[in-house]
Design a protein around this nucleic acid. Sequence first.
DNA 1: CCTTTAAATGTTAACGTTTTCATCATAAAG
DNA 2: CTTTATGATGAAAACGTTAACATTTAAAGG
Lengths: 337, 337
Amino acid sequence: MITIKDIARAAGVSHTTVSRALNGSSLIKPGTRERIEKIASDMNYVPNYSAKNLVTRKSNTIGLFFSSIEQGTSSSFLAEALKGIRRELDKNYMLTVSGIDDPGSLGSVNPRRYDGILVMSQSELDNGFIYHVRASGIPLVVLNRQLDDPSIPNVASDDRVGGRAAADHACEQGHRRIAIIEGKPGFKSSSERRSGYMDGLIAHGLSPNPNYFVQGDYSIESGYSAMNRLLDLPQRPTAVFCGNDDMAIGAMNACFDRGVSIPGDISLIGFDDMVFARYTNPPLTTIRKSVAEIAEEGTKLLLRHMEHPDLKPVQHLLGSRLVRRRSVAEPADTGGS
Amino acid sequence: MITIKDIARAAGVSHTTVSRALNGSSLIKPGTRERIEKIASDMNYVPNYSAKNLVTRKSNTIGLFFSSIEQGTSSSFLAEALKGIRRELDKNYMLTVSGIDDPGSLGSVNPRRYDGILVMSQSELDNGFIYHVRASGIPLVVLNRQLDDPSIPNVASDDRVGGRAAADHACEQGHRRIAIIEGKPGFKSSSERRSGYMDGLIAHGLSPNPNYFVQGDYSIESGYSAMNRLLDLPQRPTAVFCGNDDMAIGAMNACFDRGVSIPGDISLIGFDDMVFARYTNPPLTTIRKSVAEIAEEGTKLLLRHMEHPDLKPVQHLLGSRLVRRRSVAEPADTGGS
DNA sequence: CCTTTAAATGTTAACGTTTTCATCATAAAG
DNA sequence: CTTTATGATGAAAACGTTAACATTTAAAGG
């Protein structure tokens, strides 16, 4: 394997000069630089990053840690997140991906291995890990989940605004009996989406009906059973806001199974706008939240924190907006006009 | 940051001894080892991997390269793959993820950065990259796509067997007019699945009807339009084998839109068994191919090749089998019994 | 032309490990 | 008791870079 010393020899200069030439130092004569660059590329030189990192005390890698990498459904998150991160990340950064709960994840977190860490978090269970990273002194940004602790840089979607948009839309279509299938209890996203939903109801002069709050846990199955409970109610809702698209799909399946037509009998609104939302039957009206965008913003933020270690942490909430498809109609008992 | 020299000082030995003790060398007195290990852990020592890698000429990282990381649909692949890889990978290996077409991917491929490389490939477009890796001398396994070149270690699903299983199932249900929506032209997986499909037809005494081969490209949209073409035929097929689940979903949507009932009017079979296959309406009968399993096998294989550099490359085809759900029924014009 | 200053290059040490080779005990063998 | 082997430790070099400091070269000023 060829090193800067080989190049130095070939160019008749010292290896320091080569190092400088290759790293764009300003104190190299343009002619010399070009000559060295030419030789380096002719010789197919690639730098040894271990050596480089050893002396610069960097690792050139940023780590993405994922909660519940073992979980099935929200898997498209990962691809999206990667997409967003890569867009922002300088091309010679390495990006590693690990599960927060992978054995060894905790131990691997040290400043020599990571220049910065992104945590794609889904639940408060990740807090232990997050604080461990914080304690290690590595620049850190938490993605995807709204944090209560303002001392940690954080990028997430504005779940409350999204919930509000969903409720508003249902109200504007004329619905008055609007239920909600809630996300996992204890999750910030669940409570924020619920708050937004209630905001919307109240803004339209509706008072929330306790029967219309039913618990889910963000899984397809939970959406299915939650919807069944709703359908068992003596007075069914005419619209249901589901805490995420997965549950909306579960809810749809429950309706299919019981012969309830969407949106004829019941309107449905999801949250996330995952790829398949567009291909359900009927296509799902939902709240778009862009994981890629969150990841992108988060990466920018992380990079800034890496450069300026004592930047003030901020919480950055990205807008979420309604995308209308065909799972919402006017309620039957309100009539067409 | 604390180093082995600090530990050496604290223990009153040389740093060499510390290095040996911490790396399980056999020439250290058990007592000394324990003492040193205790001190190291008390001092919260973590090794500097840059230094380590510099001298051992390893990188301790394996790279996963993904084709079309920018593409939307098959995104759940990534999560699955990661799952499988992590299961096999020693906990202190780093795993990086990059897109094959990320700028800089090619340049980053050098033996100092990766001890081994996994390519999750979807198309022949990746060949350039694959051969570049091979030329660099890094141990390599190509996942997910069946390779023609036997000189590269390869793990994929047995697409032909899967296609055969799909056709067999349709035949056994009594179908005689069975169409296929093919995958992307030029992809090995497309032609293998088609071959399997034809094998099945022929084994049941059916001769393939040219009208029943229609082109798709693995995207949802292509499934949609392909199915429309099939529905326009004067004599419609009674069953359709789709090259993957995405296209099956597109096909389903086409049927919905034209009021064609599944499986009442037409039966549908997919390929992949992605998460949502279970939640379409009706639930999709499909061929299960486990990406996680492929990734797992591939990682094992890679690890073996890293240890024994001149192991013979093998091609490993993993079985794929039918999972019956509710998108297939007996054909209407054949009658119930 | 000589001095001063700036620009370009070179020397050497460092980064934190592992590894080769040497040294020193200690125990076994004579 | 010596010698010899062996088991445990240490010293020094090496890995491929960058960085601090020193030196040379070239340009400018008088």
